[in-house]
């Protein structure tokens, strides 16, 4: 499923003293099966942007096409769109409300009009995907641990079987292990279910590790859009808007500036390790060659 945004503008509290333009002429295309990282400062408009993707917020002007159809047409099936584009909000565990985990996950599918059996089947599948054990199904969602709650809430959206999954800072407030679990889960979902994933994040390191494409938002407009390597090449511009490139990228740039021949577009620890090993090996062989002569 593809989503296309054309000249999208959003102004909130229009006509009052608190008027603010949250989105400014945003043009984007999200292609089928992509894994996209959406990055930006708090208040850069990224949260507003993702709420447009399933029609929760209506643009002040511009058009949003889902599979070629403008969702702002009066005949458009908005409820159908909400099932196609699953949106996981920040701290999603705060929306859990049912008496047990299974029922909570059933909430979405039931709203889609599925029967109890179908909903339950979907819920069980979703819970299995996020790695929540069967003996937790009958537990109150409030008795789960922090990381489990978060995964149960994500299952609540997955059970609607969306074609696009949008997650707003899914790792906020988790400890390192919890962060890894969630990121691993998302990356697995993308691989196995072939769904489009949009990951909103603050962490350059996380994004560099997992996504194929990065969109950088600043002051309501798209500032950069490309592969991680392309985007992180603009380190000066990123710094100007209070963002940074991954730490390893800084290291390699620093080495390169001292005249050491290393690649400057390294974005992950693994790549950096390869690069430094290669460099040291070459030095060694050169050194040996020099000694041999």
């Amino acid at each position: 499923m593809s989503i296309k945004l054309e000249h999208l503008n959003y102004i909130y509290s229009q006509g009052t003293a608190y008027e603010k333009q949250a989105l400014r002429d945003v043009c984007l295309e999200l292609r089928d099966g992509e894994f996209v990282g959406l990055i930006g400062h708090t208040g850069s408009g990224k949260s507003t942007l993702i709420q447009h993707l399933n029609g929760l917020v209506r643009a002040t002007s511009g058009a949003l096409y889902v599979d070629g159809k403008n969702i702002y047409d009066s005949s458009y099936n908005m409820k159908g769109l909400r099932a196609k584009v699953g949106l996981v909000f920040q701290y999603p565990e705060y929306q859990l409300f049912e008496v047990n985990v299974l029922k909570d996950v059933c909430f979405g599918p039931k709203n889609q009009g599925l029967t109890d059996e179908e909903a339950e089947e979907r819920a069980k599948k979703a819970l299995a995907q996020v790695g929540i054990d069967e003996n937790c199904y009958e537990q109150s969602p409030f008795d789960l641990s922090g990381g489990q709650k978060r995964r149960a809430a994500i299952a609540g959206v997955l059970a609607m079987e969306p074609e696009v999954l949008v997650l707003d800072e899914p790792t906020a407030g988790l400890d390192p292990r919890g962060r890894l679990e969630i990121l691993g889960l998302i990356s697995r979902l993308h691989r196995e279910r072939r769904i489009t994933v949009v990951l909103v994040s603050h962490s350059m390191e996380d994004v560099a590790e997992y996504v194929e494409r990065i969109i950088v938002m600043n002051k309501g407009s798209v500032m950069l859009d490309g592969t991680p390597k392309e985007v992180f090449a603009h380190d000066k511009e990123l710094e100007q808007v209070g963002l940074a490139v991954p730490q390893v990228t800084y290291l390699m740039r620093g080495l390169s500036e001292l005249g050491i021949p290393v690649r400057r577009d390294v974005t992950t620890v693994e790549e950096a390790r390869e690069e430094i090993r290669r460099l040291l090996k070459r030095r060694e062989t050169c050194g040996q060659a020099a000694e041999g002569q």
Binding site: D175, P176, R177, L180, E205, P246, Q247, V248, L251, V269, A272, R273, I276, R277, L280
Partner: peptide, 20 residues
């Protein structure tokens, strides 16, 4: 103990394992 280390520490540690 379910903790991680800063990227710099991790990279240095991995390089050390590689014999650097």
């Amino acid at each position: 103990y379910r903790l991680d280390v800063p990227q710099a520490t991790l990279l240095a540690w991995e390089l050390k394992h590689d014999g650097v």
